[in-house]
């Protein structure tokens, strides 16, 4: 099964991470290597800051653009991983290793599979 791990955190919350920004980067790199070696990593990316977000919707044939994210919440989506796991337990096991779990929230959800 494929699971999407969505990585949320509040802006500035990284500062609570022991070892600071440098350590976060190093730990993310380590996580990526570990997940690749285990055959779990499908893909993953970090996203630019929420200040770069543009939200798009079409209503009555007219496209509306909004400057900013879909929902103004304290914790914002900052990146994701797509993981290949046996079941939810394995997905949880990997999600808790993502460094942001220590100061933000990781949401895991299975990727929907459509029957042929």
């Amino acid at each position: 099964m494929q699971f999407m791990a969505l990585i949320y955190n509040a802006e500035g919350s990284e500062s609570s991470y022991e070892g600071g920004m440098g350590k976060i980067m190093a730990d993310y790199w380590k996580f990526g290597e570990e997940a690749k070696a285990a055959g779990v990593m499908v893909t993953g990316d970090a996203l630019e800051a929420v200040s770069t977000a543009t939200s798009i919707r079409e209503r009555n044939g007219k496209v509306e653009l909004t400057d900013g994210p879909f929902a103004e919440t304290k914790e914002q989506l900052g990146g994701y991983y797509l993981l290949e796991c046996k079941d939810l337990d394995q997905a949880i096991e990997w999600a808790q290793k993502i460094p942001t779990a220590k100061y933000g929230t990781i949401e895991v959800r299975p990727v929907m599979v459509f029957d042929q």
Partner: peptide, 8 residues
């Protein structure tokens, strides 16, 4: 069923 909670 849908979230992949294992039966184990």
């Amino acid at each position: 069923r849908d979230a992949g909670i294992p039966y184990e």
